[in-house]
Design a protein around this nucleic acid. Structure first.
Lengths: 180, 180
DNA sequence: CAATCCGTACAATTAATACTGTACATTATA
DNA sequence: TATAATGTACAGTATTAATTGTACGGATTG
C-alpha cells in the first residue's frame, strides 16, 4: 500500500473519531461542561493511553493554562482520573471510558450536592415556618398562608428522601444489574 | 395584633421563602439554568396561582423581554407550564410544584436528546469503521487501530441501549413506585 | 375596522465566562 | 544544593451569554 493511502486511512479514522467527539461536545452541556471540555473528553476517550497537559495542549491547540483548568473540571466531575504515577515529571490523566461509570459518578455527585443544599434549606425553612404557625398572636389568614408553604416544603422533603434513595441505589449499581 | 406585627410576620414568611428560593437558584446549574431562572422558578413555586409576564417582571425586577426568554426556557425544560386560558389578554404560567414530575420531565427530555445525538453519531462511526476494517488493502496495524475504536463504540452503544431503558422506566414511573 | 395591548424578535449593552500569557511556587533531577 | 521543568494562580483579553430597550406583528376589544 502506498504512503498516501495509509495516510488517507489514518485521516479517515480521525474523521470518524471526530464525528463522535463532536456529538460528545454537543451533549456536554447536560453535564455542565463547555463544548471545548467535551472535545477534550472526547479526545481522551479515544486515546488509548494516559495524556499529559502538553499533549492536550497540542491536540486542542490551546494554552497549557487552559488545559490545566479544563482537565481539572473533568476530574472534579470524575469523567477523567489523575493517575498516581508520572511520566517524565508530567502528570498523567486518563478518561473514564466506561459510560456506565461516568453516568454513575456524575449523577451521584451532582444530585448529592443538590440533596444537601436543598434539604438544609428546607429544614431551616420548615423550622421557622413552624415557629410562625404555633405563634398564638397571628391571624388565621397568616397561619393558613404559612401552612400552605409548609405543606409544599413537606412534599419537597419527601421528594429529597426519595432522591437520596435513588442516589444510593445508583451508587450500589442497582439499576445496572441486568446489564453490562 | 398591630399592623406592624402583621407586617413583620409577612416579611418573615417571605424571608423563609427566600431561603428555599436561593437554594433552588444555587442548584439550578445542574438543570442547565442560570441562577436568575432558578429564582424565577422558586418564586413561581411558592406562588399559589398562575403568573403573568408582568407579574414576573415586577417580582424579579427585570425587563419583560427577559422574563419572556427566562420563562420560555423553563417551559422548554418543562419546569413551568403555559396555561391554555388567559387573564385579561395575558398569558398565564404556572410552576410544576411536584419535584417528582420536574425530575421525570427534565431527565427524560435531556437524556433522550443525548441518546439521540450519541446513537446517531456512534452508528455512523461504526458503519464507517466497518468499511475500513473489511478493506483488504489496509495494514494489520491500521485494522487493529480501527478495531480498537470499534470496540469502544460498541460498548458505548450498549450503554445507550441501557440508558434508553432507563429513560423509558423513568417515563413509566418505575422508580417512583414505592413512593409518593 | 380602528385602537390598544400582549409577547417576542432583534440590536445594543452589560455581565459572566472562557481562554491566554506570564510569573512563580513546588517538585524532581543531577 | 543548584538547576530545570511542571502545573497553577493571576491578571488581562476575548468570547459567549444574559439582560435591556425598542419596535413590530398579531390578537383582542370596543
Amino acid at each position: 500500500m502506498s504512503q498516501e493511502m495509509e495516510y488517507h486511512i489514518s485521516e479517515q479514522r480521525l474523521h470518524i473519531r471526530q464525528i463522535v467527539i463532536d456529538a460528545i461536545a454537543e451533549t456536554m452541556d447536560l453535564y455542565g461542561g463547555t463544548p471545548s471540555s467535551g472535545q477534550l473528553y472526547g479526545i481522551m476517550f479515544f486515546e488509548n493511553k494516559p495524556m499529559t497537559l502538553d499533549e492536550m495542549k497540542v491536540r486542542m491547540n490551546m494554552s497549557k493554562s487552559n488545559m490545566s483548568y479544563a482537565v481539572r473540571s473533568l476530574v472534579e466531575s470524575q469523567m477523567v482520573k489523575k493517575l498516581e504515577e508520572k511520566q517524565d515529571r508530567k502528570e498523567l490523566y486518563v478518561a473514564e471510558v466506561d459510560f456506565f461509570h461516568t453516568f454513575q459518578n456524575f449523577f451521584t455527585l451532582k444530585l448529592q450536592r443538590e440533596i444537601n443544599v436543598m434539604t438544609e434549606a428546607i429544614s431551616k425553612a420548615l423550622l421557622e415556618l413552624t415557629e410562625i404557625i404555633i405563634d398564638e398572636h397571628i391571624t388565621d389568614q397568616e397561619r393558613n398562608l404559612a401552612l400552605q408553604d409548609l405543606y409544599k416544603l413537606r412534599h419537597g422533603q419527601t421528594y429529597y428522601e426519595w432522591l437520596q434513595k435513588f442516589v444510593d441505589a445508583l451508587k450500589q449499581e442497582e439499576y445496572f444489574k441486568d446489564f453490562a
